[in-house]
Design a protein around this nucleic acid. Structure first.
Length: 684
RNA sequence: GCUUCUGUGGCUUAGCGGUAUAGCGAUUGAUUCGUAAUCAAUAGGUCGAGGGUUCAAGUCCCUCCAGAAGCUCCA
């Protein structure tokens, strides 16, 4: 028997099934037909879960009732106690009521299953022929697993009625999203350390080692390696068992008025205040400059894409649960969770000459969306909407991609240094790639001078054969990745074979002078990591090292770079003029015009991590000079000394100092209401 | 998504059955000050939302919302 969309083809009069039948209504949507075997298997799994639920239902009720009885007994005891002892308050909880089975226990079983195609479950039914394959496939998978399963060759319209057991198990809706996964590959990966002098140390092998074993090699046991030990714990073993508190960067981002939660949006979608936006725009400009220097070009692709394009589905199906859907007319679209899809689609439509390679294409992803699990969201570390600068570099072949990789490795190190972020390196590769390429990787790590963790996979599961990550450890020992570089050998292909299936890819082609063509290797690079994570890393590392290092942002990133403080009212006009002159040359300066004592104003400037504080009194006013407190941001904290005093210099001298420090970095102006302390806008 | 915890003036917080405690900030007044917090007064609260128990509910119970931690997860 074959499935059909024409009921008249079905010759039999009726479909006879005895006993207690589980009806599984199935709708097939466009993205599902990308691989009907995979979706059928997932459908069958859901049906098996449902059977388990039904058969376990009486036991669940029993358990529930037991809980209620225990609760009521306790309550009764406390009531009696309260009666005898006036000091004990009477509990007022009302009795919880027991749940009851609707029918006899013996009815909660499944004798057979009918898989039934039913259009009414979805507004986005697939019209493709392959969609008819899904129900027979589900039935056959279930049969193979030992169930008595059948499928209806077509769905009746609305004219049937069903009598059900009881509502608790009678209707269960599950949205099964196509999900291509191969967990075995990752489960079998081994971890090693590549030491700063180029030696390989064993770290963890899931087949030999247990997770509670102390796996840190002796040479990294010392206190100076604390951060590296935390990285090992977090990357290899999963986070430590210790109960962690709320990460401090959350209070910091709020009190510094950088970013905040917004209860009128979906969780993980933050609002950004002026100072946060200022920092974001500075990072944006900075990265753009670095990308241009590095030879990249720009693109900007749409934020939503269709699921009807099979080139895209091959990749989107990896993360089915993480998608935001947008409805538009009779269509629906995925909000992008990376820009790769539409960028690669663009690449596949481009004329690419071999001599243009390597070609970097940079996109500042205005926003990407991943519907992360609710419990996974945490301050700025993981959000559902984030801005992710992304560079893709098309390379002729593997040797060229390795050459580019090394260049980008240097670029990432420079970016992190310019931002003021200290990070580790973790890399992951297939065993084969490591065997063939470890010489240059070892050389790079040696030059960097710190130990790195690496993970080797027996086979390639992801689209890349090598991935470098730059994780940062926060004040509580949790790690999160900022920059990444990957070598993608898969996306540009026409088709790939994977787990016995032929899967469509983007078919990106370059043409050589002799007319021959090739598929480029693509480097995926996130030069800095998501913007929110940059702020996360900066706030957390300031908190982490606040007793050792003077806190603050690099001057080019500081929302306010200079604060001008007058000592008395007589100095106010002079102070204001200095503030105006600095802003005239695009140095972000504000002016503390409050009627407060000097000590308090200085304290405010210190608490706000302002790099330069100018103090002017009668002496400076008469000499036409300024006195400067330079905050020693990033330097070792000795005897609680956070600043260096520069007395009685000309304003021009300070401009020189600051301009030198800002050389090569972008400049943005401080919004006017922020230039006067008393007029500053408060967001909270 | 599951489990646990948290939610009190703009901010930080005390109170945990008898209609709100303090500090910061704000406002007003005094003070004109030389390198990390000047003094005083005033205003500001349907205690996250809704429902319930009680003579009485920030306080106990239920539901929801938001945030955090742990688990699962993180191309």
């Amino acid at each position: 028997m074959k499935a059909t969309s024409s009921p008249q083809d079905f010759k039999e009069k009726d479909l006879k099934i005895d006993g207690l039948v589980l009806f599984a209504f199935v709708s097939v949507e466009d993205q599902d037909i990308f691989d009907t075997s995979v979706i059928a298997k997932q459908g069958a799994n859901v049906i098996e879960d449902a059977i388990e639920l039904i058969e376990g239902f009486p036991d669940k009720i029993e358990e529930h009732n037991k809980e209620i009885r225990e609760f009521n007994e306790k309550l009764e005891k406390r009531r009696k106690l309260a009666k005898d002892n006036p000091k004990i308050p009477t509990p007022t909880e009302s009795l919880k009521s027991e749940k009851k089975l609707i029918m006899d226990r013996k009815f909660y079983t499944v004798d057979s299953i009918l898989v039934y195609p039913w259009a009414h479950l979805s507004r986005f039914l697939s019209q493709e022929k392959e969609s008819m394959e899904v129900c027979p496939k589900i039935a056959s998978i279930l049969s193979d697993r030992g169930y008595k399963a059948d499928f209806s060759p077509f769905g009746w319209y609305k004219s049937f009625s069903l009598n059900c057991l009881g509502h608790e198990v009678a209707e269960m809706y599950r949205d099964v999203k196509l999900s291509i996964l191969a967990d075995e590959v990752r489960a079998n990966s081994v971890f090693k350390i590549l030491t700063e002098d180029g030696k390989v140390l064993h770290l963890y092998d899931p087949k030999k080692d247990t997770k509670n074993k102390d796996i840190v090699p002796d040479r990294y046991k010392g206190k100076e390696w604390k951060s590296f030990q935390e990285l090992i714990a977090d990357e290899v073993l999963g986070s430590g068992a210790t109960q962690k508190k709320e990460p401090p960067h959350i209070k910091m981002m709020q009190s510094m008025e950088l970013a905040d939660f917004d209860d009128a949006s979906d969780a993980g979608n933050l609002r950004w205040y002026t100072k946060g936006v200022l920092m974001k725009n500075l990072v944006k400009d900075y990265l753009e400059n670095v990308m241009i220097e590095n030879g990249a070009i720009y693109a900007d692709t749409p934020v939503m894409y269709t699921v009807k394009n099979k080139k895209l589905t091959a990749q989107t199906a990896r993360f089915p649960a993480k998608t935001y859907w947008v409805h538009s007319g009779n269509n629906r679209y995925l909000l992008r969770f990376a820009n790769d899809f539409l960028l690669f689609n663009m690449f596949s439509q481009m004329q690419i000459r071999e001599e243009s390679l390597p070609l970097g294409v940079y996109e500042w992803e205005t926003y990407s969306f991943r519907r992360e699990q609710k419990g996974e969201l945490s301050g700025l570390r993981r959000l559902r909407a984030f801005v992710m600068p992304d560079l893709h570099t098309l390379c002729k072949d593997l040797p060229q991609s390795v050459k580019e990789f090394k260049k980008e490795f240097e670029m990432v190190q420079r970016i992190l240094k310019d931002l003021g972020i200290n990070s580790h390196i973790v890399f992951r590769a297939t065993e084969q790639f490591w065997e063939e390429n470890n010489d240059w990787i070892i050389k790079s790590i040696k030059e960097w001078g710190q130990p790195a963790i690496f993970e080797l996979w027996p086979e390639r599961y992801y689209y890349f054969i090598l991935k470098f990550e730059w994780p940062v450890i926060d004040s509580q020992g949790k790690s999160a990745t900022l920059s990444t570089i990957q070598i993608d050998v898969e996306s540009s292909q026409d088709y790939i074979e994977q787990f016995g299936e032929k899967r469509q890819k983007y078919n990106i082609i370059y043409t050589s002078k002799d007319g021959s063509t090739g598929h480029p290797i693509i480097l995926h690079t996130s030069p800095s990591g998501a913007f929110c994570r940059i702020i996360w890393a900066l706030l957390e590392s300031n908190e982490k090292y606040k007793d050792e290092i003077v806190t603050g942002f690099k001057t080019w990133l500081s929302p306010v770079q200079v604060r001008v403080i007058p000592i008395t009212d007589k100095d106010k006009r002079y102070a204001e003029k200095i503030m105006i002159k600095l802003n005239d040359v695009k140095i972000r300066a504000d002016y503390d015009d409050r009627d407060e004592k000097i000590g308090k104003k200085i304290r405010s400037a210190e608490v706000e991590w302002i790099p330069y504080t100018i103090i002017v009194g009668s002496k400076e006013r008469q000499n036409n000079t300024i006195s400067v407190r330079k905050r020693l941001i990033g330097e070792k904290l000795v005897d609680n000394k956070t600043n260096e005093q520069i007395q009685d210099i000309k304003l021009a001298d300070l401009k020189k100092i600051i301009n030198k420090e800002l050389k090569g970095f972008p400049r943005k102006e401080l919004p006017i209401p922020f230039r006067y302390y008393s007029k500053k806008i408060s967001f909270r």
